[in-house]
């Protein structure tokens, strides 16, 4: 079971969180074209290694968090607020 250090609430069990996926994709601006929105909805790199992901603390503060997690080891390197600029470490 993952343990996630919510920047608002502290270390909590994975069971309190909801998962959404890749947090590096950004919604295109309102005037974005079909290809840009297609990429936002569907294109994912599915990395083996470090991954920046959206997790929501559903049973806690309900904040969406950026979690830097290793998809092989499940190690969590960083848990940041939604607006923070977070990047995956190089492998």
């Amino acid at each position: 079971m993952h343990r996630i250090d919510c920047p608002w609430c502290g270390v909590r069990d994975e069971a309190e969180f909801g998962y959404r996926g890749d947090a590096t994709v950004r919604r295109p601006a309102a005037d974005g074209d079909a290809d840009a929105f297609y990429a936002f909805v569907y294109d994912r790199t599915n990395p083996k290694g470090w991954h920046v992901e959206w997790w929501q603390h559903v049973a806690g503060c309900r904040q969406w968090l950026k979690v830097v997690r290793h998809t092989v080891t499940h190690e969590i390197r960083t848990v940041a607020k939604a607006g923070d600029d977070v990047r995956a470490p190089s492998p």
Binding site: R20, R62, W64, A82
Partner: peptide, 13 residues
């Protein structure tokens, strides 16, 4: 609710 929270917190804060 989660959908609204996602767009408010991450897209249009």
């Amino acid at each position: 609710l989660a959908h609204m929270e996602f767009y408010h917190q991450t897209v249009w804060p």
